[in-house]
Design a protein around this nucleic acid. Sequence first.
DNA 1: TTGAAAGCGCTAACAA
DNA 2: TTGTTAGCGCTTTCAA
Lengths: 355, 355
Amino acid sequence: MTPTIKDVAAHAGFSIATVSRAINAPHTVNPVTLARVREAIDALKFRPNPLGRQLRGERTRLIGVVLPTLANPVFAECLQGIDELAAAQGFRLMLMTTQYDAERERHAIETLRAQRVEGLILTVADADTHPLLDELDADGPLYVLMHNDTKRRPSVSVDNHQAACDGVRMLIAHGHRRILMLAGTLAASDRARQRHAGYALAMQQAGLTPAPALEVDFNAQELAPSVLAHLTSGPARPTALFCSNDLLAMVVMRGLRRARLRVPQDMSILGFDGLAMSELLAPPLASIGTPNRDIGCEAWQCLMARIGGQYAGPLANTLPHTLRTGGTIAAIAHAPLGARGSAIDRGLELGGALS
Amino acid sequence: MTPTIKDVAAHAGFSIATVSRAINAPHTVNPVTLARVREAIDALKFRPNPLGRQLRGERTRLIGVVLPTLANPVFAECLQGIDELAAAQGFRLMLMTTQYDAERERHAIETLRAQRVEGLILTVADADTHPLLDELDADGPLYVLMHNDTKRRPSVSVDNHQAACDGVRMLIAHGHRRILMLAGTLAASDRARQRHAGYALAMQQAGLTPAPALEVDFNAQELAPSVLAHLTSGPARPTALFCSNDLLAMVVMRGLRRARLRVPQDMSILGFDGLAMSELLAPPLASIGTPNRDIGCEAWQCLMARIGGQYAGPLANTLPHTLRTGGTIAAIAHAPLGARGSAIDRGLELGGALS
DNA sequence: TTGAAAGCGCTAACAA
DNA sequence: TTGTTAGCGCTTTCAA
């Protein structure tokens, strides 16, 4: 079958130790020997079996990646960033997805630990209260979270609270008063909570009353009638919707269109994620953007530094978010002038603090 | 550090051989012994190190996955399908992306072989003339291609030629005469060629003259002026565009909108991929759909059957494509009645052969 | 039913 | 500079 270091040694007429050295520390072997060994390696098309090395207790050069799903481009983009750096630095990636399921998260981490990965990059449903992460803290391997916005653990994320707050302030600055937040059914994540808190803060600071997030099953690709009724009926219907992610925003937009509501004339929409694709919509979706690729890269570098024992940065790494204004937000003209003016001022003032 | 089988043996008061048997063949050990060993395993939180097993036997339970990119949801969806089955069957996935680069394809395959994966699932730029695949055919590991539409190698794909042909016939049936095909710059793939051939055949069978594919750099997210000119100027401008993928179609639609061309009134658009997201556009994008998730699942099952030595299916596995008609296609009313009628007849007749 | 021992492919003391 | 040898954690004969 596949040649081993033994075969190479036999072929070259040296010991396996010499072959090993020829591969791992070429400068320590006689040039002539080296040449002969290399000849043999080529002749046999030998490739060192990493399993041997790995078993030996050396570095496995394996990094585990745990993500909720690849169906959401947010995570696919993070992975893309990670993969880029991993490939360049000679690491291999072992991937597992969890569908936001706690049991699958547990299983993924167990499997990856068993495989002796040198490090872990992961996004979990809820980082703060995660017993498995405590275990990792206790006896390794090292890990870095992505998108889990927690101060308690090594992580790379945007400031979800601030980002949502900025976005909702922008809506308020456009004269909106009745702003509703829509969230996916998997709303039990730390991010979702923080985004809602940001929304609530922005509302309160403007003297408005925040509402609980309205849950929407957006896997159905269809808006439930009850939800639609909530959005469209009565004089107290919202004039703007803050959706907890872009996919949800797109589904909502379609639902509204079907109900003959125009975006943005009848309803303004703000998304979260800043997907490249949602900007291609007509009108382009306004959205709070997260630098997913950068988050992946940053998580990688952070993990590598930790593994090297030379990480000096903060525990929680906050990357700047962006605010993509777009065609889906209209200004409300019918608000009382006084209130509207002050809202705009407040919005602009705070907008200046944006990255 | 992490406990080994030795520690368990010592703790339980038996030999490592017995512990191994207790884990891998519980029925061959005395129930009392078994209980004691299991106690020790729990007490020490022992998890067998797969590296030991892998090195010993040939079963690594590792499958390599090689994809061009995860930025395109097509591949992310395939991977999702693969991951689902892999997790259920206790396999681990090692992922590498290539960005359609031949050198990176080579490197990925080499790395994965070295890691002793038991099988490989991959999408390459061009499968027919790929020396590395010949090597794999020669001395393993077993592999299955996804989306590479070739008769010469183990693969799972739609019939790209037929699919493109069906789509263009549909355009013709709607009265279109001047139909142009747009392709991404990475058009050197086997799929792109076959899709263009399908377009050309449909055109010729309708007595129309196919044009070479117009290359568009859609990573720029912006339509080049020269391309735009080609699409909009003169009386001979195309009335319909067949885009080689949905992402491209979305970028093109935006370009047209900016040039004040209405879709579909001024220009009809047909995409390829059938992304869920592109159906959320306004108007929803007409597109030829590929069952990506199923392609991933099918590739997995096909690979497993081959590894088990019990694969009985065809070398090339063709899955049905779908034709999603949508708001982006308008009927052309100004075509001569005779020609238009016959085109529709032909279209309907052929449409019946669709899955 | 259990244990002793060999060996999977490799690295790293230690010797020569 | 090169070789000998002892493991890394595990499975699997072969004996007991």
